[in-house]
Design a protein around this nucleic acid. Structure first.
Lengths: 224, 224
DNA sequence: GTGCAGCTTATTGTATACAAATGCCATTCG
DNA sequence: CGAATGGCATTTGTATACAATAAGCTGCAC
């Protein structure tokens, strides 16, 4: 982390994810270099990486822009995520350890608490949800899969405002996680994969519905 | 293509795929820079890209190495490829044009000729096969999918010596392609996806079998 | 007033110099 | 004799300078 290159990468990436760098806006190496307090060299390194991860795009005259996804792109990403994460579940079912299962149960209990409390804490839910899924990926033990999933899982925050999923949906996630845990305990990869597919698809539909009703955000952010 | 950076990228990539740069061997920026006739800067750019595409790996002290895949990694790649390419087939079924179908038929006829001739021409088969699959990807029209598939489709040549698939297997590929074409004509995405899954899986099994009997290459190339 | 030409400016590409870090080897001390 | 340590060599990281390219603008001609 002490490398300027890594700092620049993380900085830029988080600026994209947080929406600080707006989708579609042009990126100038010099400007980012000043922002990160480094020279253009590490910024360029970072841009190449982010480009490969499709967070950054370039036009034919080598100008860089923050990726701006259409709703189609987004649905495509969710489809890919459903497939990849189901595959992860299948692999994980064969390899997962008791210790990993225990950690998953903890996170699942925590995310349940987060939405069942009198004052629901959605960010906390999101965090434990993320960790729950991360353990599956860890158990799947495929570097390639991990890097591919990163590309379709992390998305700019402007496209998934925190309050968008209603609590009912969040609670259903919790129950689907329960079912995943049972599938893992039985080391039933097919079952785990099927549950995961349903889980991700449902999440997307909830998401798409929330956005189709929210015409204001939908119109402005999802326009090409 | 006139950019030194692109030239370096293509050069290094092809050296990896051809086996000229052996899996596991260390990469020194300076050496590659001389080889490509450029400075270290574009070489570094290329290495970052190739790293993101998992053709190049780095240890914890920032040294780069040509990726060296285990048999497990390879099977993993094929599984991913089966999923991704099935998804491509599904998308393609909805979008493919008459013109694209026509081109696919031409390539399929050509690859049939290549293996049915008195002197079978395996490289020619491979080329038309590649183009056949490329058209499906083109019809699927998903950039993300395209870049992901590139990572699991292109592999060092040392791991797939030209003669490895016997002609019988190649002919079966031709017939599976025929079935894909019918599925596309009927715009039946599920069918196309199912055929594609079977197609890729069979190809992997033929491949794995050829390699398990060829202990010499298997031992030397697939060792960690 | 409109369109094109050429220049000006902004931005990226490349090379090089130097700094930092890593690995290797030899030397020394227990 | 083995392990630890210090310094040297190799390799990568970063900054900067300059070259090349593309965009934008100004002014001229029609």
């Amino acid at each position: 982390m002490s490398r300027a290159s890594d700092r620049a990468y993380n900085h830029i990436r988080s600026m994209i994810l947080s929406g600080e760098l707006q989708p579609g806006s042009q990126i100038r190496e010099e400007a980012l270099a000043e922002l990160c307090g480094v020279s253009r060299t590490p910024v360029r390194d970072s841009l190449r990486r982010l480009e490969a991860e499709m967070f950054v795009r370039r036009n034919d005259s080598q100008r860089s822009f923050v990726a701006n996804w259409s709703l189609d792109d987004l649905e495509d990403a969710f489809q890919l995520r459903a497939m990849l994460e189901s595959y992860a579940a299948k692999r994980a079912a064969m390899r997962i350890t008791r210790e990993q299962l225990a950690r998953m149960r903890i996170h699942n209990a925590q995310l349940k608490q987060a939405v069942d409390a009198v004052h629901p804490d959605v960010p906390r839910f999101i965090d434990h949800n993320r960790q729950f899924h991360a353990i599956i990926l860890e158990a799947a033990a495929s570097e390639r899969l991990t890097s591919m999933l990163a590309q379709v899982t992390e998305q700019p925050v402007v496209l998934r405002t925190a309050r968008q999923y209603d609590l009912e949906n969040l609670r259903r996630s919790h129950h689907e996680h329960d079912e995943l845990l049972i599938a893992f305990e039985n080391r039933d990869g097919e079952w785990a994969a099927a549950v995961m597919t349903a889980h991700i698809r449902r999440a997307f539909h909830a998401y798409a519905e929330a956005h189709s009703t929210d015409t204001e955000i939908g119109k402005t952010d999802l326009a090409a």
